[in-house]
């Protein structure tokens, strides 16, 4: 009885990410994790889209902070960042938008943010404001294990999760990488940058087997996932599926806000159903 109580208490005080994966696991479900760029086409749409994606079945949402030099991104997300920056999207405004989301939703939110955005803003100021706004975790695609020390201490202090990233080339690095992070392991599907791929060369089954050897954390696969079919194929080997470029492209291809909400919601639903 007391262990159950402990467990319940632990779940209540948990980071929203842990809580989400705990609940999904209870139900035997996988996490659907969409990515959108903040401010593309506008921050108002970004806020509204989060609600629509949640309605469509999204479990955790990645909000990309647009950056001038997104090294890990392919052409679709690069162009999206450029559009958001042209719209004058600033980090301050993104923090405000997150607060607006938090007034209505408890969905776990993570920033996908390049390190220079954090560093130049001030690491502590950034982490503090992100936490205050309601962000649960940070994915920093250009900050490998070796460079995480400063931000690790600060994010622990503020209770924000640093999501670890592993790649098919990581091999024996996986253990230390996972130990340094929290929430879930972002498993980069393939050698390369973000995009929409027709197929992925990596032997996902074997790759996830290796990652599982080193960690018990939930594992989410991202980079290149084009839609429900591919998501369905990967789902058995992981705990979550991350889809970015396909959604960002859909947003840009839609002709009105209503069309954006409609298309994206349906797309999220189709993936959630598939996994």
């Amino acid at each position: 009885m007391s262990t159950l109580n402990n467990e319940i208490n632990a779940v209540v005080s948990m980071n929203r990410i842990d809580k989400k994966f705990y609940e999904l696991k209870q139900k035997g479900l996988k996490a659907m994790i969409p990515f959108i760029t903040a401010g593309d086409p506008s921050l108002d749409v970004t806020v509204e889209l989060v609600f629509k994606m949640e309605e469509g079945g999204a479990d955790i949402i990645e909000i990309g902070i647009p950056y001038s030099d997104p090294l890990a991104d392919g052409p679709i997300i690069q162009a999206s960042s450029t559009r958001a920056l042209k719209n004058g999207t600033k980090i301050d405004n993104i923090m405000d938008a997150v607060k607006k989301i938090r007034q209505k939703s408890e969905i776990p939110l993570v920033y996908l943010v390049y390190y220079n955005s954090i560093f130049k803003y001030g690491i502590e100021r950034f982490v503090n404001e992100a936490k205050e706004s309601g962000i649960d975790g940070l994915i920093i695609p250009d900050l490998p294990l070796e460079e995480r020390k400063d931000i690790k201490e600060i994010s622990e202090k503020y209770g924000i999760y640093l999501i670890p990233l592993v790649a098919p080339t990581s091999k024996e690095r996986i253990k230390n990488i996972c130990e340094s992070g929290k929430g879930f392991v972002y498993c980069v599907s393939t050698k390369g940058v973000t995009g929409i791929r027709n197929s992925i060369e990596t032997d996902i089954k074997e790759y996830m087997r290796i990652v599982s050897e080193y960690t018990n954390m939930p594992k989410a696969i991202g980079f290149g996932i084009s839609g429900p079919d591919m998501a369905k194929r990967f789902a058995p080997y992981c705990d979550g599926i991350i889809v970015g470029s396909a959604i960002v492209k859909m947003i840009n291809d839609s002709r009105s806000k209503e069309e954006i909400y409609d298309n994206v919601k349906k797309f999220i639903y189709s993936i959630k159903e598939a996994i």
Partner: peptide, 13 residues
């Protein structure tokens, strides 16, 4: 200095 790069590159570096 340092190595602020995607994890995929680390083993190559």
């Amino acid at each position: 200095g340092g190595q602020y790069v995607p994890e995929t590159i680390m083993s190559a570096l």
